[in-house]
Design a protein around this nucleic acid. Structure first.
Lengths: 255, 255
DNA sequence: CGAATATTTGAGGCCTATCAAAGTGAGTGG
DNA sequence: CCACTCACTTTGATAGGCCTCAAATATTCG
């Protein structure tokens, strides 16, 4: 993930940059800059997290919202029989448990997939700010609606796409979310195990492995050293039925 | 659906009651009564809708949010190949397209399943109110988070539950959402076709039919005249792995 | 009553799961 | 630097859940 050079007006805080800047929230058009900065001030300093640590337990009542500054994580729920469904893969800039902002109990858990760095936004403070500043409250609503869009698409994949298309779709999505743009071949860091991928797509790891081999054999992707490279983006997108528009709600904010 | 007798303080509007009263929004603890009433005033009178009419087209830009006052509807998305995934079944009191409040384009469609009555909340007005009154903005955020919870659970079903458990789960959920409470046997109006059910659960209608027969054969449910009756609620819930807590975020609002 | 829609039944096959084991690679400690 | 372990990937064989296609039956509605 490259950080875009900052060429806007100078912000009032000098250093270090708030973890909030890495977040979609930072660019929410509904959030005036002064309110944004107040929110940024409420964010605690980021700290490092080991891989595979549980940030939020299922049915727990976390007193903070976690911002994923670096590394990968995922949100999941489990059935009583032990089946695990990952509802969202989280990459740098994502918010782990937005629901904790207003729900006492969240019905999902959050876990780091890699070493990660996390910043906390204490719930009480966020709520206070949202109660006083409409821009902040609207920004939270907007962020949650964005998450809903992602959940819709994810559900469409799980419910109605073949395993191969599902895999292709998630790879296309991650390319965009990680900012690995470019028309031709492109690659991005990809630290997920095939078991995690399977849990994200409602498949077994064995089947993920086989589908991945098919994508490789078709010359669509290549993997090496935890790097995913997309060799044939149009082909992969065609196979996936991928339409990137759902990932760009910023372009489409209703005013 | 029975309407609960109203025994709270008198509202200032005399008649008719606002469609908003049927909505979860009405009881949102974050929404002060005066702001709530302003929102209610912005709602247009309800009007009747024929079955199977498209309220929101996929990728469209509706200028209103639709409140489902009566009847059933559903939200869905389609793959390029024509597969349809219903992401949410909508019953009286639900909001059809909350995302339209802030997203110019929504990536799903909404369609009525039965004859329905719908009230419109013009987007512009809702946005103006949300920009001025924090309670309203927070209420929208809260509603969206509630939808988020529902989507998570639905995805868990589709991804990780067997067809039979999926069906059982959705029947348990609808019982609660329709207010068909009671410990023992209970029944509720159930106008959905098996094809719709299949699209909601990522199954074919044929398989829904077969699973439904198994539930009937096991003495768990009975159907007649578009009425669903649950004969053995504990048994159905056990089969489904159903835990109703996710449906009651009101009890668990973070303050 | 007739047409359209929805449910039910049957046969056959594919996609994905399951179970098990071998291969690979990274990290650890001697 | 080399065994050793652990986690992950890969491979194979088999089974089963769910789909597909097709047709018969039941139900709704004009």
């Amino acid at each position: 993930m490259d950080v875009q050079p900052y060429d806007g007006p100078l912000v009032r805080r000098a250093s270090p940059p708030s973890p909030l800047e890495r977040t979609r929230l930072w660019n929410c058009p509904l959030l005036p800059h002064d309110e944004r900065d107040m929110l940024a001030d409420a964010v605690m300093p980021a700290r490092a997290i080991a891989p595979n640590t549980e940030l939020v337990r299922e049915n727990a009542c976390p007193d903070s919202v976690f911002l994923l500054v670096d590394g990968w994580a995922y949100r999941y729920a489990t059935t009583r029989e032990g089946g695990r469904q990952i509802s969202a893969l989280l990459v740098p800039g994502d918010i782990c448990n937005l629901g904790s902002l207003m729900m006492e109990r969240v019905d999902y858990a959050v876990r780091s997939a890699t070493q990660a760095t996390i910043a906390k936004l204490p719930r009480i403070q966020a709520q206070k700010l949202a109660a006083e500043y409409c821009g902040i409250a609207n920004a939270f609503a907007w962020l949650t609606m964005y998450e809903n869009v992602m959940l819709h698409q994810h559900m469409l994949s799980i419910g109605r796409r073949s395993a191969k298309a599902r895999l292709a779709h998630i790879l296309c999505e991650l390319r965009v979310r990680l900012g690995a743009d470019g028309e031709g071949a492109c690659s991005y860091s990809f630290p997920l195990t095939q078991e995690l991928l399977g849990d994200a797509m409602g498949l077994t790891s064995v089947h993920v492995n086989r589908m991945m081999q098919q994508l490789r054999a078709a010359g669509l992707i290549a993997t090496a050293d935890r790097i995913m490279t997309i060799l044939d983006l149009p082909g992969l997108q065609r196979l996936a039925g991928f339409d990137c528009r759902y990932l760009h709600p910023e372009d489409a904010i209703a005013r």
